[in-house]
Amino acid sequence: MELTRRDAAAALAALGASGGVALGARFAADRGERPEEDGSRDGDDVPADDEAVRETLTAVASVVYPSEVAGVSEFVEGFLAGRLDGSAHATGVRETVAELNHLANTWHGAPVADLDSADRDRLLREVGADTAEEDPGGTTAERVRYYVVNELLLALYASPTGGELVGIENPQGHPGGAESYQRGPQ
């Protein structure tokens, strides 16, 4: 099933984006406090740039999205074009991607995008993102679950194409109109 830029736009319509506007005071205020580091993060990490975020999330999407989904790169790129704004969320994504790549380099000798699919899957499980509950201010595992894995799953399954994969063309979060609930199975 082909994901399109339209799906990316639909995901953004569901989740919101304002596009590159940094709102100074609020940006600082809503970053919030981070708990104690869990020791797996290099204090010298710097937030990933947009290109690294796109490459990394596209690579992770190839693992967490179903195998029949095509057009992942364009979908992720389109989605992130709106998500990587000046918000605290965008900062969290960048920082967490940098952490994940640091771990990929340390444990597997290459950033996430350069790992093969099996190693990406293994890395995510080694980090603990499979069993962690998402938490934007939690451990590395919880933040990878929040900012990377669930970020991608939310984008996919709140879009019409992602919804259709599991039987609902107007999933929660998608403004797909007030007619689909009236229709029977196709």
């Binding site: 999205y65 179903p66 069993t131 399954y157 999933p171 929660q172």
Partner: peptide, 14 residues
């Protein structure tokens, strides 16, 4: 709701 269910559990992909 599928999108809510997708964000929990220890599975991904297929």
């Amino acid at each position: 709701s599928p999108v809510e269910s997708a964000l929990t559990g220890d599975d991904w992909g297929d």
